[in-house]
Design a protein around this nucleic acid. Sequence first.
DNA 1: CACCATTTGTTGAACATTCATTCAGTATGG
DNA 2: CCATACTGAATGAATGTTCAACAAATGGTG
Lengths: 237, 237
Amino acid sequence: MLETIRPMKTAVVKEALLESVRKSEAEKRGRKASKEVRQLQLIEATIDSLAKRGYSETTMADVADGAGLSRGIVNFHFESKEKLLIATLQHMYDEYSAHWRNALYKAGDDPADQLHALVSADFDRSICNKRKLAAWCAFWGEAKSRPTYQALSSARDAVYQTIFIDLCATLKLSGSYAYEPQVMALALSAMLEGLWLRLMMGTEDTTRETALQAANEFLSVAFPKHYPSKAGGATKP
Amino acid sequence: MLETIRPMKTAVVKEALLESVRKSEAEKRGRKASKEVRQLQLIEATIDSLAKRGYSETTMADVADGAGLSRGIVNFHFESKEKLLIATLQHMYDEYSAHWRNALYKAGDDPADQLHALVSADFDRSICNKRKLAAWCAFWGEAKSRPTYQALSSARDAVYQTIFIDLCATLKLSGSYAYEPQVMALALSAMLEGLWLRLMMGTEDTTRETALQAANEFLSVAFPKHYPSKAGGATKP
DNA sequence: CACCATTTGTTGAACATTCATTCAGTATGG
DNA sequence: CCATACTGAATGAATGTTCAACAAATGGTG
């Protein structure tokens, strides 16, 4: 099962396109960019707007201004505002998906390493930052009332969840734990999402470091034989 | 510290008012209701709209229609749409707050019972249902870009968090655990929020029961001496 | 290479719609 | 009969979409 997970090839391509977007900062005007680059540029501007103004205040004009282009341009590249937002969500979903698949691939064959890699990947700067988290949260707020968003809006999809369950089951066998893999996987992935939520609320008392620390603490108590606690031993009352 | 937490008296009053709202279903028109009842009625209609249509699609007209009243009514009782939404958020915040305070009060003096009561309270039908969760999520999506929402939007506030930390610290002493109370409390409360998020996404694979089960599983592995696992003992490989 | 025709990307003003707000008028309870 | 709750049409601002005109690339032809 796990052997079928490979980093997505398209991720590399998109990375290169994003580079083009950043490079062309100075030369936004005129017909300098390819269709794909321009679309990515608009998607990035959309994420900016979602992060800065929230979903309900994100306007076509703001996206166009953010990209340094004219008003009508979005309707040319994307058919409508709705299609732009769907494309933006799909982009973030693909990026997140490629990120954890890559982390899993690089983790090697040990299940404990794999689980730890997945957890750590969630708090990597490239995807876990104010801008992206805020954009995710904006979509979450609308997901329940929009069928189109529902499938994409929880970045951690069914495949991700299945892998979590499999890893929990494997560790249970090798560590003689008592929990139910499915239940433990739910608790774990829910905590990761909850930590994301905390981070985006951004009350400054939760940072990427403390969030990661909490996640690792969870791993230590749930799988003590695989992740021995790094803190001092048990204290007597 | 914990001894100062008491159920809020105002909760009882509001419950009575809500009763009035429900009773007057048939007689919405005319000057039948007091000012407070009418405001609660509008707030309930706002929650309905948020749940059904999401934040960005919630309109004054929809709220008024939902309450069976005329268009201009909201601006009469609340000054503006923004004030209505703030009042709605405040209402949900107060309700949630009263709920966990009451649960804590009824739990008695044992810290383990208290923590368990807080966790269970989160999944009580009265506050953990599609309608309310969807409304919470709608506000979360806008909170980061609206300073006014920020304080109220995470129902679990600083006081709640402090109590969690205190309980974790107490249990650590009596159970000789190795974790850092602050870190464990963060992991725990983040998981609760994450489970809420799952429930409101409503992909049907997570129910209130399985969510509560996952939360209890967490308690079992984090505080094994206080919450002995109910599943069969450890299995050998 | 030069020239022109065609396709394709881009602009910005005009348009239509949606929606919060206002307010003059009406109804109702005390 | 007065104060107050309430109504609903009018208003104006905000915003997504359309489109005619323009500009840049492309490709074919002599």
